[in-house]
């Protein structure tokens, strides 16, 4: 087919992954609701759903890598698809996190009488923003600088240096997640402690979860760079990971300023 193909698009083969991903998502949401309402078997269905979903993600993206890197189906026109897709996905992620900051601001700008009319609510202990939160805030932008170093190395064809830069990026990401874990471990409140705990852990927790997703994405890029999958001219996966990483590192500044600092003093 290839030798006669006169258009530049990739007409994909039939794949089982869309339906398996849908079933995994269904089991995950139903199992999650069952689990949170203490239904019997909820934890089992949730776990099976998550395993199914993670398996689907692995094999689907494995297939995309085979089609692009090993079979050469990703012409210039095809590369535009995942590019636009990644950008739109990140835009939707910005809106997702915006909702949590909205909830936090909504609750803290005019604190209700139930929480003593003050923010942080009466009796709630908060973290000192000038300790670990401040220390942790520049780590993600530094990691963002390291991913830019990796990008320049890829564009310059310095393959080994790009791997080193990605290792540095991932290490900084892990340090950040480590600090976040430490902070949660020592936190004076929990997610069930008033609207403060709910909004604090929802916003910082989802941000931390996105840091972990971005870290996994960067690790995959590092492995692919090590294997020689990424070239000077074609490294869409890396670009998407770098955009995602910059989204995650810039977003860190919002919880620091509005939740830890403004909302914690």
């Amino acid at each position: 087919m290839i030798e006669s193909q006169r258009h530049s698009y990739h007409l994909v083969d039939p794949s089982p992954w869309p339906i398996s991903g849908s079933l995994g998502a269904l089991a995950t949401t139903v199992g999650g609701v069952m689990y949170m309402h203490s239904f019997q078997g909820g934890a089992t269905l949730l776990s099976l759903g998550l395993i199914f979903l993670l398996y689907t993600m692995f094999v689907w993206w494995r297939d995309v890598l085979r089609e692009s890197t090993l079979e050469g189906h990703h012409t210039k026109a095809v590369q535009l698809g995942p590019r636009y897709g990644s950008i739109l996905f990140i835009v939707s992620e910005v809106m997702f996190l915006f909702a949590f900051f909205w909830a936090s601001s909504h609750s803290s700008l005019a604190p209700t009488v139930e929480i003593g009319g003050i923010w942080p609510p009466k009796g709630i202990g908060v973290l000192d923003p000038w300790e670990i939160p401040l220390l942790n805030t520049p780590i993600l932008p530094s990691s963002g600088a390291a991913v830019t170093w990796a990008h320049h190395a890829i564009l310059a064809g310095k393959e080994k240096r790009a791997v080193y830069a990605l290792v540095a990026t991932v290490l900084l990401a892990l340090v950040s997640t480590g600090f976040q874990g430490m902070e949660y471990y020592q936190a004076p409140s929990t997610i069930s402690d008033s609207i403060y705990g709910s909004t604090f852990f929802l916003a910082t927790g989802f941000h931390g979860f996105h840091v972990i997703i971005g870290t996994l994405f960067l690790i995959v890029c590092g492995i692919r760079q090590y294997l020689g999958h990424l070239t000077k001219k074609h490294h869409v996966g890396f670009e998407a990971a770098a955009w995602y990483w910059h989204f995650v590192d810039v977003v860190r500044l919002f919880p620091f300023v509005s939740i830890y600092w403004w909302g914690g003093i």
Partner: peptide, 13 residues
Amino acid sequence: MPIATGLEREELA
């Protein structure tokens, strides 16, 4: 010529 295969390689060539 960058490393590429299949249709992508034909396009670059």
